[in-house]
Computed example of a mutant assay.
Amino acid sequence: MTETYRIVTGVDGSASSRAALRWALWHADLAGGAITALMAWDLSPIYGWAPDDAGHRTARTLQDVVHEVAGESRVPVERVVVQGGPAKALIDAAADADLLVVGSRGHGGFTGALLGSVGQHCVQHAACPVVVVREPGGRTG
């Protein structure tokens, strides 16, 4: 019995994370692997949303992005929503994965940055290899 090649992919709805998911699907198809698409949420109480609302909205966004990007792909995609910071959630989820795939930048921070803080953290701390996928069009800021 062989274990399935497992790829964890960070999804936040950005163009960069969609490109990362697309790349992970391509690679998983070649390797005969499966994907865990992970989306994390963490809201301060000042936003006025109840945790259930944020969790449901995040799950719906993840569902929509995976459906849009994966379409009729034959690669199995597990959807995981986690409460907490995205960098820690990705590192934890990828602890026993074969590969972690993230977009080069997401929704936060400096829009001109070549690599976002979550991607940077993953590159520095992941226990498995990390692939950083640039946003389509090669935009650098």
Rank of each mutant, 00 (worst) to 15 (best):
L90A: 11
G48H: 10
G48K: 04
V75G: 15
V80M: 11
L99E: 08
A94D: 00
A70H: 12
R60Q: 15
A87R: 13
D98V: 08
A50R: 07
V77D: 12
E72K: 13
A54V: 03
L62E: 01
D53M: 05
A87D: 14
T58G: 03
A59C: 04
Q63P: 02
E78S: 05
E68K: 10
L100C: 04
G85W: 00
G84I: 13
Q63C: 11
V65K: 09
V69I: 15
A97H: 07
A94Y: 00
K88S: 08
D53C: 00
E72Q: 12
Q83T: 01
Q83S: 09
D96R: 14
I91S: 04
G84C: 09
E68G: 07
S73G: 14
L90C: 05
E78T: 15
E68R: 12
V80P: 03
G85A: 09
G84V: 09
T58F: 05
L62V: 00
D52S: 11
W49A: 11
G84Q: 09
D92Q: 13
L99A: 05
V66G: 04
A95F: 03
V75M: 10
R74E: 14
A97R: 04
A93L: 01
G84T: 13
A59L: 06
A95E: 10
L99F: 08
Q83W: 01
T58I: 03
A59R: 08
A54Y: 04
A89N: 02
R74I: 02
A59M: 02
S73D: 11
H67K: 13
V80T: 15
V81R: 01
K88G: 07
Q83V: 05
P51W: 06
L62T: 00
L62I: 06
L100G: 03
L99W: 10
A95H: 07
E68H: 06
D98H: 15
E78R: 15
A87F: 04
D92G: 05
D92M: 04
L90P: 10
A87Q: 03
R60Y: 03
V69T: 15
V75F: 13
E68I: 10
A70W: 12
A97P: 04
L90R: 06
Q83F: 00
A95S: 13
T61M: 06
G71Q: 13
A59I: 06
V75H: 09
Q63I: 05
E72M: 05
D52F: 02
D92A: 12
V66I: 11
P51D: 10
E72R: 15
V66P: 10
S73A: 14
R74D: 07
K88H: 11
D96N: 12
D52M: 12
G55L: 00
Q83C: 06
V80Y: 02
D64R: 08
V66A: 05
G71F: 11
V80L: 15
R79T: 14
A94N: 01
A70P: 13
V77H: 13
Q63R: 15
A54K: 04
V77G: 11
R60A: 14
H67P: 03
A70K: 13
R57S: 07
V69Y: 01
A50H: 03
V65F: 07
A70L: 13
P86G: 08
R74K: 14
A89R: 01
